[in-house]
Simulated assay, not measured.
Amino acid sequence: MAGKDIKLSLWALDPSINIESVSELMTLNYNKPIDYLSDRPGISSFDRTLMNRWREYKPDQGFEVQEIEVFDTTFRYIPAKAYFETTVGLNQAIVNGTVLPREYRISDNELPVFFFEYIGRVYVIVSGSEYKVSSIRKLLMGHGRHATEEQKQWQKVHLKDIPNYNFTSDFFYWLISKENQIVETSLVKMEISDIRFLAQTGTERSDVRHESQGANILDEAVSKTGLGVNSRVDKIGTTISFEGGHINLIIFDNGACWVDNYSSAMNGVAGELEAFEENLETGTLTLFCGILPELRTAYNTEKDDDKWTTGHQAAARKLWALGAINELCSENEITLDEISQLEWFFNKR
């Protein structure tokens, strides 16, 4: 059972890797010998080896390329599970000269992984904590120190500047401006019902980071002040509702997402609502193949049509700044005469 947040990391494979190649790479041998047991007599090969491998997402499914339709568009993908084992250190594994039984020194880990094709590139979505997620690259994607030449066929896994999923601060300003509005493209209508999380970092005059979380955060002076001074926004939390369900999530600038499992749901086969985790395969692919690309499409369309320009963002920032000033004046009973003595207004005389 997942916790409150389902953490979804996004990577991009090397352009030379296609979705069929992924199926082949999953069948390689990823077992790893435990160094401190390699020369120890009386230990079976199984007991001195970490059994790392790719597993089927569902029984008898294999690693065949599958298809899913998201917003009337067909995408090819492979669902899988990354299975890897970790071991305790030498001093914990061998007690009084005796190697402990395997179950006392080796732990198993299994994470869902979805490979999908989008605009000629294969992307990877991994669900899990950053610590475990990074182990997948090292142990199952040829990035470990002891990776074989065969395993290195995965080539470089890109973690930053992900094509088509790199979201700028201007994109986030645009998305914030859509709170409680409908965003529509040729494929889908999406309602942006609230902004519940906001991370702001630095301005030309400051490098201070601030994060706000909770209902109605855009009514708070701190959040409005940050937006008013054009701080850099690198992640926001919102709820996106569409015909197939609704997702309460935090979107990061590198394309990663944290989905609130307790308040996100997808339509099941019969149209009934299911928790996001219960429909993880469909929910995750809908998010990364549909929701995020369509948000990006809507943003680019408004920029191309001059419906979202530097002037529009400046106007939005001005409203947020005025809102912050109003709230601060109210909280501190600041008078108009006191405001007129501020340096900005005093110098305007």
Rank of each mutant, 00 (worst) to 15 (best):
242 F>H: 08
242 F>C: 00
218 L>Q: 00
247 I>H: 12
264 S>Y: 12
270 A>M: 13
252 F>N: 09
254 N>W: 00
211 E>L: 14
262 Y>E: 15
217 I>N: 02
238 T>W: 03
209 R>P: 07
210 H>K: 13
232 R>H: 08
232 R>T: 06
211 E>R: 14
226 G>H: 09
251 I>S: 03
234 D>W: 15
205 R>P: 02
268 G>Y: 04
232 R>V: 04
270 A>F: 13
237 G>M: 06
209 R>W: 13
211 E>K: 14
205 R>E: 11
252 F>V: 01
225 T>P: 06
213 Q>F: 14
232 R>F: 06
244 G>A: 13
208 V>M: 13
211 E>F: 13
235 K>W: 00
252 F>S: 09
259 V>Y: 09
251 I>D: 01
262 Y>I: 06
239 T>K: 04
206 S>G: 06
219 D>V: 07
246 H>V: 04
267 N>R: 05
225 T>E: 14
240 I>E: 08
221 A>E: 14
256 A>L: 04
215 A>G: 06
268 G>R: 00
247 I>V: 15
203 T>Q: 07
221 A>R: 07
205 R>I: 09
249 L>P: 00
220 E>F: 06
237 G>N: 08
232 R>W: 05
206 S>L: 12
227 L>P: 00
215 A>P: 04
257 C>Q: 03
233 V>L: 06
254 N>D: 11
243 E>W: 07
237 G>I: 13
231 S>W: 03
234 D>P: 01
224 K>L: 12
223 S>V: 06
215 A>R: 11
264 S>H: 11
264 S>P: 09
247 I>Q: 14
214 G>I: 10
220 E>S: 11
203 T>I: 06
270 A>K: 15
212 S>A: 14
236 I>F: 07
210 H>N: 14
226 G>Q: 08
210 H>S: 15
224 K>Q: 15
222 V>L: 14
226 G>T: 06
